[in-house]
Write a protein that binds this DNA or RNA. Structure first.
Lengths: 134, 134
DNA sequence: CGTAAATCGGACTTAATCGGTCGGGTATAG
DNA sequence: CTATACCCGACCGATTAAGTCCGATTTACG
C-alpha cells in the first residue's frame, strides 16, 4: 500500500539517466533497459509518455533515442508521476476523481483530514526536482 | 497508485468514531458498519487488529464492543496504518522490506532520493494524531 | 532504393493484490 | 441456555499492475 508503481520507478530511473548524460548525447530505451536490467518494452512505453509530455525529446529512426527537453531543475517528481500515471498521486479515490466516485462521501468523517495529508504529500513530491537526484 | 487501502480508510473512520463518543460508552462494529454503510465483516476484522495493537479495548459477550484504549493525542495516523497493514506505509519494496527483495537494488540510482521522499512522508503520517480528526 | 535500428501504440496475457464473504469458534450478560 | 458480540482463518471474485506481443512508422546510411 502506498507504493509507487514499477512504471514510475522505471520512469524515474530513465529520466535520471538521460539527465545525467552529456547534454548533446541521445540515449536509447534499449541502452537504459540493459544498463539497469529493466523490461525493455515496458520501459519503452513509459519513455514514450514522458516524451509526449515534453520532458524528453524523441528522435526517431536509426541512431535515434531521447534527449532531455528542459532543465532538470524545472522537472518535479510530481510531474513525472503525473505524466506516467495520467494523474497526480492521490491517497484516496475521492481526491483522485470526483467526490461522487465514493459511495460514502456524504457521511465520510475523514475526508477533511485526508485532504490535509494529501496537501502535505503533494508538497513532498512537488518540491523535489529531477536535478536533486542526478 | 499511492492510495490508502479500504481497510485503512475503514479503520480511520472507526477509530475516529470511537474516539468521538462519550468516554465510557462501548461501540460495536455493527453500529459503525451501519452508521457509515461499511461492510461489516471487513470492518470487524480491522477493528480486531486495532484492538490487538492496543488502540481500542475489546469487550466480549453481549453488550460488548470497543472503547478507546488511550488518549487520542497519543495515537498517530501512522501507527494506525501500521496496525492494520502490518507495516508502515512505504513507497518502494526495498524500503518496506529488505533491500534484496529488489532485483535491481545494486544498480538502482534512485533509492537514495526515494529514501528522502519516504522520510518526508513518514513525517506527514506520524505527526498527524487521531485527536486532530475527531 | 532497401535495410536496420529506433520510436510509436494498441491489444493481449499473466500475476499479484484488494475487497469482500463465509463458516465456525469463544466469551458473557441476563 | 440463549442471544449477541468479538475472534480468526480460509476462500473467492474483481480489479489492477506488470509484462509481452505484434505490427506500424520514421530515418540514417550504404
Amino acid at each position: 500500500m502506498l507504493k509507487l508503481s514499477k512504471k514510475v520507478e522505471y520512469g524515474l530511473i530513465a529520466m535520471r539517466h538521460v539527465a545525467a548524460g552529456e547534454s548533446g548525447r541521445v540515449t536509447t530505451a534499449k541502452e537504459i533497459a540493459e544498463r539497469y536490467k529493466l523490461p525493455y518494452e515496458l520501459l519503452a512505453k513509459v519513455m514514450q509518455k514522458l516524451a509526449k509530455r515534453g520532458f524528453i525529446v524523441s528522435h526517431q529512426g536509426v541512431y535515434g533515442g531521447y534527449t532531455l527537453a528542459k532543465g532538470a531543475g524545472e522537472i518535479s517528481i510530481s510531474s513525472i508521476i503525473d505524466a506516467i500515471e495520467g494523474q497526480l498521486p492521490a491517497i484516496a479515490q475521492c481526491i483522485a476523481e470526483s467526490p461522487d466516485s465514493c459511495s460514502i462521501y456524504d457521511n465520510c468523517t475523514i475526508k477533511n483530514p485526508l485532504g490535509k495529508i494529501q496537501t502535505n504529500i503533494d508538497t513532498v513530491f512537488r518540491s523535489m526536482k529531477l536535478s536533486e537526484i542526478v
